[in-house]
């Protein structure tokens, strides 16, 4: 009797991301003795945390059959706003007033900024029926320009230890960014699996017109989803800024691509309605491990981009193939 993988196909499809991750880890650990070390493990986890935050929001957007290209720029602006307010506050010379921001206040201002930009994305997409690609591409440029204006093109540094703890600190032996991303993922899993909002998101991605006919307020849900994506990009911005103790005007450049890659590799369909937050986490881990492995193996940064591009392409091809067979 010939050996065939056909009976195992459903299991292979279900666990394809985990299998890919295992093969990747095995390959890198054979080629580099630095990969399977505690220090490198936590380093990778810390790096992945930012992408997990952004990709969680991106997953919600993609599940509604949308896309958000602005997350990298929103991340930069939110981080810059936080750093700027923390460092310089708001100065009103005419009134001889200085409004200072505590770490909590500056972080809330950063997250509010991200949420507002996300809300604007959702509003523009639903109000003017713009394709999400176009609306968020415009926001990518707007937010980057605002970041340059706010920072005047210079990094904002010296943010204090209480703020940098967010990106560099440890709690119960685990880096704080990892805790934060775990909490965000847990909440997102609950929202997508156990709440009405989650069901509506899947319904809109499956068929927007059917969802509308079923009484779902599609516009409202979309605005909520883009607002959440903006807020989570802002959280990513806080992590990056805190980790570097510096808000860089060009922070987050091309983060949207890593985020989309994580979502796609994690099995979320770009046409919406199918995918999961946990799949995205696996995708983010794969991207993170791939980045780390390529660095450890001394692969040129230019080749790293080529390799990542092919991995994304492969993931989309596999996704298409699975969709057809279903």
């Amino acid at each position: 009797m010939p050996l065939t993988l056909q009976p195992y196909r459903p299991a292979l499809v279900k666990f394809q991301s985990l299998i890919a991750l295992f093969v990747l880890c095995l390959g890198i650990s054979l080629l580099s003795d630095k990969f399977l070390t505690g220090a490198n493990f936590w380093n990778v986890m810390r790096q992945i945390s930012v992408n997990v935050c952004i990709s969680t929001g991106m997953t919600l957007v993609v599940l509604t059959a949308g896309i958000d290209l602005s997350v990298g720029s929103v991340l930069a602006l939110s981080g810059a706003i936080t750093a700027g307010l923390l460092r310089n506050g708001i100065q009103l010379p005419d009134a001889n007033l200085y409004i200072g921001f505590t770490v909590l206040g500056a972080m809330l201002a950063g997250i509010t900024t991200g949420s507002a930009l996300g809300w604007f994305n959702g509003w523009a997409i639903t109000r003017f029926r713009l394709p999400p690609f176009v609306a968020t591409l415009a926001m990518l440029t707007i937010a980057r320009g605002l970041t340059m204006l706010w920072t005047e093109g210079f990094p904002i540094t010296g943010l204090g230890e209480s703020f940098t703890y967010l990106g560099t600190g440890w709690f119960l032996g685990i880096p704080v960014p990892v805790w934060l991303s775990v909490i965000i993922v847990a909440v997102a899993v609950l929202v997508t699996n156990k709440t009405r909002l989650g069901r509506y998101i899947y319904a809109i991605g499956g068929s927007e017109s059917a969802a509308r006919l079923s009484g779902v307020n599609v516009e409202r849900i979309k605005i909520i989803v883009y607002t959440i994506a903006g807020a989570l990009a802002a959280v990513g911005g806080l992590l990056v800024t805190s980790r570097l103790d510096s808000a860089q005007p060009n922070a987050g450049t091309s983060y949207e691509l890593d985020s989309i890659a994580a979502v796609v590799i994690g099995g979320t369909s770009l046409s919406g309605g199918r995918g999961s937050i946990l799949g995205t986490v696996q995708g983010a881990v794969i991207i993170g491990v791939l980045n780390n492995g390529l660095v450890l193996l001394n692969v040129s940064p230019f080749w790293q981009q080529v390799v990542k591009g092919f991995v994304i392409l492969l993931a989309v091809i596999i996704d298409k193939s699975n969709s057809k067979s279903e």
Partner: peptide
């Protein structure tokens, strides 16, 4: 939240102190 997020000072005092963010 607002009380723990913001504080207001005289701008002249802040400038005199030479620092807008302590420790920076």
């Amino acid at each position: 939240i607002a009380y723990n997020s913001l504080y207001i000072r005289k701008l002249s005092d802040i400038k005199a102190a030479g620092t807008a963010a302590a420790g920076a």
